[in-house]
Every structure is written in structure tokens, then in C-alpha cells.
Amino acid sequence: MLERVIEVWPELVLALGQTGVMLIVAIPLAILLGTPLGILLYSIGPNGLKPKPRLHRILDGLVNVIRSFPFLILLIAIIPITRFIVGTSIGTAAVIVPLSINAIPYFARFVEQNLTQLGGGVVEAARSMGASRAQIVRDVLLVEARPALVSSITIMTVSFISYSAMAGLVGGGGIGDFAIRYGYYRYDTQLMIVAIVLMVVLVQVVQISGSRLSRHLDKRH
């Protein structure tokens, strides 16, 4: 097995790099755009800072629709949009588009749930001290929800590692593409096992790091 790994080492390193690029772009985009969307969903929700039931139903429905799409179907369905944005429908850059589109509402729902779980007592205490809505969100809710948000980012990252692997089915690059080309098309079981082990290690590193950071931010520990 070692000889086979050495033989394909450059391709393996390239595949790891492609998976890393997908996550390094898609996850920050999800946080950057999903956080304000999640705050909005919370704020206009039934127990939010400024409930707007009709608008909440519309946004909630849109988020549910996008999240309900299986990633592989979304990947294929938005090929025209992907081609318009990045100029191609294959490769690592092309996969980042559907990954980001899927990740934004995914994380927005996490944000909404994390803020909702804090309860109304925190908000009322901030209001009694004269805090504005923006101050409540920025200085109270997001601060109190940090451990939960870090856990949510960890869960999302782990999920999207598997999504990035599925991108290999359409030539998206990454570890999934490597596993399919060598393990499926060439029946090379050894390299398939290597790809699986790398995926497991990557997931474990992300999970352990995220869990430790979440515990560090949690004031209750």
C-alpha cells in the first residue's frame, strides 16, 4: 500500500488541497451571509425582537426549500448559474457555488435556533438596561450564543466535508474525486481505503477542534 501511496502522492496532495479550498471558501461565506439571515429569521420570528409573521413565513419557506434539496441534485440543477458565476460547470471552483448556496441557509437555521434557545430572559434584561435592538443582537445574543455557534460551525463543516466528497461524481475535484477515480473506476481498493482514512482523519480534526473551542467559550465550564 505504501508504494501505491507514494506513487500517487502528488495527486493525493492536490485532492486534499482542493477539498480544503472548497471548505475555506464555502464555510466562511456561509458564516458571513448565513449569520445575518439567521438573525433576521430570529428577530422577525414569533419570539423575536420585532415579530413579523408574514415575512417570517416567506423567509422560513425559502430557507426550507433550499435546505431540502439533496446536494447532488442542487449541484446539477444550478449548473447554468454556476457557469455564469465562475465560467465553468466542472472543477473545484464550480463546486464552491452550490456548496455555498446550500451552506448559507443551512447555517442561518443554526443561528436562528441558537438564538431562540437563549430564551427571552436575556433579551428582557438587556431591554431593561436601555439597550437597542442592534446592541441586544451584537452585545448580548451573539456573545451568549458563541459556544453554540461554534458547535454549529463544526457540525456544518463536518457535513460539508461529505458534500465536497460527493462533488467528485461530477469531476469537482477533492478527496471524493480521487476516491472515485482510483477506487471505483480502477478498482484500486488500497487507494480507496487511503482516501476513506484521510476523510475520517479530517472529520476528526475538525470535530475535536470545534468541540474544544466551544467548551473554551462556554462560561458554564
Rank of each mutant, 00 (worst) to 15 (best):
M1S: 15
L2Y: 15
R4D: 13
L12F: 09
G17V: 10
V21P: 06
M22W: 04
M22V: 07
L23V: 06
I24C: 14
V25L: 08
A26F: 02
I27K: 01
I27M: 08
P28G: 08
P28I: 07
L29N: 06
A30Y: 04
I31V: 15
L33G: 09
P36V: 00
L41H: 02
S43T: 11
P46V: 12
N47E: 15
G48H: 00
P53N: 14
L59M: 08
D60E: 11
L62A: 15
L62E: 10
V63N: 01
V65W: 11
I66C: 12
R67G: 04
R67N: 03
P70E: 07
F71N: 02
F71A: 01
F71W: 05
F71H: 03
F71E: 05
I79C: 06
P80S: 06
I81F: 10
T82D: 07
T82E: 03
V86R: 02
G87L: 05
T88M: 14
I90D: 08
G91Y: 07
T92G: 03
A93G: 11
A94K: 01
V95Y: 09
P98S: 06
I101E: 02
Y106A: 11
Y106S: 10
R109V: 06
F110R: 01
Q113E: 15
L118T: 06
G121L: 11
G121Y: 08
V122M: 15
E124V: 08
G130C: 04
S132K: 12
A134T: 15
A134V: 10
Q135N: 07
I136F: 01
I136Q: 00
I136P: 00
L142P: 02
P147H: 00
L149I: 04
S152N: 05
I153R: 03
M156Q: 06
M156R: 06
Y163H: 10
S164P: 00
A165H: 02
G172T: 05
G173N: 03
I175G: 00
I180S: 08
Y182W: 12
G183T: 00
G183F: 03
Y184M: 11
Y184K: 11
Y185K: 14
R186L: 11
D188C: 07
Q190H: 15
Q190K: 11
L191D: 01
M192H: 13
I193A: 13
V194I: 09
A195W: 00
L198Y: 09
L198I: 13
V200Y: 07
V201F: 11
L202A: 14
Q204Y: 09
I208M: 12
L213K: 06
S214P: 02
R215Y: 09
K219I: 13
R220S: 14
H221L: 15
